[in-house]
Design a protein around this nucleic acid. Structure first.
Lengths: 190, 190
DNA sequence: CGTCTATTTGAATGTACTCAAAAGCGGTGG
DNA sequence: CCACCGCTTTTGAGTACATTCAAATAGACG
């Protein structure tokens, strides 16, 4: 049922007892959002950490001049939030918006703290989650600095084929840091 | 003495007993490196996590064409390693090199696992460390995508004044993703 | 079917790069 | 202690990559 995916996601890294699993799931809230709905608006407080049961979300930063920069995409089995805003209780620096109808599990920060306190294994799980997220971002930085746009596109397509199927070229362009027009000319060369 | 800085760094987030602190420090190895010495070479295995007691290190990726991209700088009180290579036991994707004479504490992965096992508080500490590192990288990505080089430079200078004092303009340029020549023209406008 | 947005195409522009060379600076050895 | 050497930084000219703007085409959705 609705908790299967999230429990198996956690189960990849730590083993929970029945009691621990049910304590954890008791803190989860189910949320369904329609395509184009905002899960989080920039400058709002970010109250929840989200886990995607199904659908696709996109996190993006919006500048004063209206330029969008995609921070990340999330599909089923991914965790997503504005980690800066969530953990520091600060106005969020990004929007999170549904690319298609999505079902998510929500976890509040106070509940997460309860979980950490009661089940230390969750500290380990989130340590691993944050470690992987850090490595992912660092590798992305290296690629952005060292590779031309054309290779960044090729690598994105081969690394995230499932995401490529779901999102628009314009959204990929804003993830790669190029304009949609330029991505179009890159793709023509392929 | 040599453990004061690292213990106070950890103490910001978790409280250790005397016994825990001494178990932890028993796993640390002191290392001194001279200016320009390599702490890690790209493609080597990355056996250690490092904490800087003093000095300055720079982590950078080197492309086939010889282009350097600075991943991060570290000064006293910072942790640094090739997190990808360290945690996955893979060939490292970056070099780590001393910008000036430096003193570091080294921790091996097997020892870190022992510490996690014996003192779960360290899972929490590293969860927080990884979380902050993730947030830092994510904010850097957003800036790289949304800001022109000139503003990225201004923000770097105001965010990391202590690092600016230690490293060359060329190294800052490779962190910002511009050529030294272009950074020079940016600075002229200031 | 009509509207809205995404995608493509092309022309003009600008930002950042390459290459070359001069100037500055720090370290080293005679 | 000073002269030289190597590397960093600056400067400038020419170039290339990527952007902006405008408009046509194509797709998605009600």
């Amino acid at each position: 049922m609705q908790y299967d995916l999230i429990l198996s996601n956690i189960g990849k890294y730590v083993k929970l007892t029945e009691a621990e699993a049910s304590f954890f799931t008791s803190k989860l809230q189910l949320k369904e959002v329609g395509k184009k709905a905002y899960v989080l608006q920039q400058n709002e407080r970010c109250r929840h950490l989200y886990f995607l049961n199904s659908g696709t979300l996109r996190a993006f930063h919006l500048t004063a001049r209206g330029k969008e920069s995609t921070v990340m995409f999330a599909i089923a089995d991914w965790w997503i939030t504005d980690m800066y805003a969530f953990t520091n209780d600060q106005p969020s620096v990004m929007n999170i918006k549904a690319v298609e109808d999505s079902q998510l599990m929500c976890l509040s920060y106070p509940d997460l703290e309860l979980i950490w306190e009661k089940i230390p294994k969750f500290e380990k799980f989130f340590r691993i989650l944050m470690q992987k997220a850090y490595v992912r971002e660092q590798l992305r930085s290296i690629q952005n600095l060292s590779l031309p746009a054309t290779e960044r596109y090729d690598r994105f397509v081969s690394k995230y084929p499932a995401i490529v199927k779901k999102v628009t070229k314009k959204q990929i362009a804003s993830y790669l840091g190029v304009t949609p027009e330029f991505l179009s000319t890159i793709r023509k060369e392929r």
